[in-house]
Design a protein around this nucleic acid. Structure first.
Lengths: 206, 206
DNA sequence: GTACGATTCGGACCGAGGGTCCGTTTCGAT
DNA sequence: ATCGAAACGGACCCTCGGTCCGAATCGTAC
């Protein structure tokens, strides 16, 4: 049971598609024109068939893109140094995690929007959500005096949803740093501890 | 500048469409088949043209449905007795409001899902959102010692989003009362007061 | 009751976008 | 060089929101 190695052209095309799609999602200035599959195929210089064979469907492609983008953060979270890494004390790690997630959505608004806008009750279908949720829940559980870690994790994630971020930063012109600060302050409120007035910690924020 | 009274058949058809659409959204057992405009037209026994002339577009129809459904709650909130009405002290009113919103989404899952799934950064486009947000913000502002009432209101509303509710209750089989209790407990946590262990108050919950 | 303009009806039609099919091309192993 | 397997690509299909316009209906004036 193993992966048969893909043919050279297949690999090249897959990479080209990822690059083109990434480009298209990133370049998108505000307006409301969708990134279409045909667009991506054209930009990558391949046929639509290739694109669907490589990724299955639109969701698959977006997941692949997303995966590539979050990988650095995942690494930092799973084996990196504090404040994101596992060695960080929970009370400090939780705000750091949320800030990292928020920064990611700020940096990849259109991609995150596309990811969360897939299907009808996404983003809760995507495996990514379950991972983040499990992580947050685990961290919350290590904090004494907190209850409902499951629901709390859901709400904290809901506070970073792409469309909310887009609404606040894109439409209502709230500066990103302001949003980060508000999320941080909200988080400390939820954690129940008296807010320590430090800034939300340096993040990757490529 | 006034409303020319509509023709009789127009009024009848409009009502028929609303009834049919309501029915379709309500009847929908779990499966993932979309309610389509053609479906609604067929169920109402009218042509698609009629439907679009009466409501403009899909969004308009869903808004009209939503409006009809929330009206009782709006009334209760704007001029009803405590715990929803304006005479209620803020610390008590806020959980009641959130519980009412949550109950509404529980009772109208498919409709709420359709409403929030419209466009790409909905539900923040719908005028309803702004109204709820303004109300929550105003109530929060009356509570001394709270900051960031704007952002807090956004997060509390995010905690009641239709797709989250659907995920928890529909997929993960969390019983509705459990969700209500968790939201209530989360709310009191956010309000910063020591949780008083009362149940989430009787609601309309038709 | 009838005539007639204004309004509404309704379903054929359109365009966009996701996804499929299959004849053609390219790969890479022998 | 040969040949089977894998990948290519774009024409094609389908669904769905939305439009159009000739036909049907309404309501008013007489």
């Amino acid at each position: 049971m193993s992966e048969r190695k893909p043919r050279k052209d297949a690999a090249r095309n897959r990479a080209a598609v990822l690059a083109a799609a990434d480009e298209l999602f990133a370049r998108r200035t505000s307006p409301e024109d969708e990134v279409t599959m045909a667009d991506i195929a054209a930009a990558a210089g391949v046929g639509k068939g290739t694109l669907f064979r490589a990724f299955g469907d639109r969701t698959g492609l977006i997941h692949a893109l997303y995966e590539a983008r979050v990988e650095p953060i995942r690494n930092a979270v799973e084996e990196g140094p504090p404040p994101l890494g596992p060695a960080t004390p929970p009370l400090q790690r939780l705000p750091a995690l949320l800030d990292a997630i928020l920064c990611f959505k700020l940096d990849n608004r259109h991609l995150a929007l596309a990811l969360e806008g897939t299907g009808s009750d996404s983003p809760y279908q995507a495996g990514h959500y379950d991972r983040w949720h499990a992580l947050l829940q685990a961290v919350l559980e290590q904090i004494p005096g907190l209850t409902d870690s499951d629901f709390t994790a859901h709400v904290l994630l809901a506070a970073t949803r792409a469309d909310l971020v887009e609404h606040l930063v894109g439409q209502r012109r709230l500066p990103p740093e302001g949003l980060r600060a508000q999320l941080a302050s909200f988080t400390t409120k939820v954690l129940g501890s008296p807010a320590l007035p430090g800034s939300p910690a340096e993040q990757i924020h490529s």
